[in-house]
């Protein structure tokens, strides 16, 4: 069970949170201007990262705030968490296991 560092509440068990998928995918400013393929890109396409990955979490059974986490999808190592709109922390050099 992950130990997730909520920027407001501190470290809490994973069961207090909901997962929100890849971070930093902004809703397009003017969807009407987009081609179907561009809209589909926003709607459906996500990276399938092996290694450090920026993802969103919601402290649903806590302060109910959304925030971002950098987690290694192979080792589950969490580098840090940061509030919406903040810059992500620096990533460790190794981006995953060579396994």
């Amino acid at each position: 069970m992950l130990n997730i560092d909520c920027p407001w509440c501190g470290k809490r068990h994973e069961t207090e949170f909901h997962y929100g998928g890849e971070a930093h995918i902004a809703r397009p400013e003017d969807p009407a201007k987009l081609e179907d393929t561009e809209w589909a890109e926003f709607l459906f396409m996500r990276t399938n990262t092996k290694g450090y990955f920026a993802e969103r979490w919601l402290h649903s059974h806590g302060c109910r705030r959304w925030f971002n986490v950098i987690r290694n999808t192979v080792t589950h190592d969490i580098v840090g968490s940061y509030k919406m709109g903040e810059k992500p922390p620096k990533l460790p050099k190794r981006t995953g296991d060579a396994k």
């Binding site: 909901h18 929100g20 902004a26 969103r56 919601l58 109910r64 705030r65 959304w66 919406m84």
Partner: peptide, 13 residues
């Protein structure tokens, strides 16, 4: 409620 709060916090703060 989750949906409303998500948009308020993440897309339209």
């Amino acid at each position: 409620l989750d949906w409303l709060e998500e948009y308020l916090q993440t897309e339209w703060p």
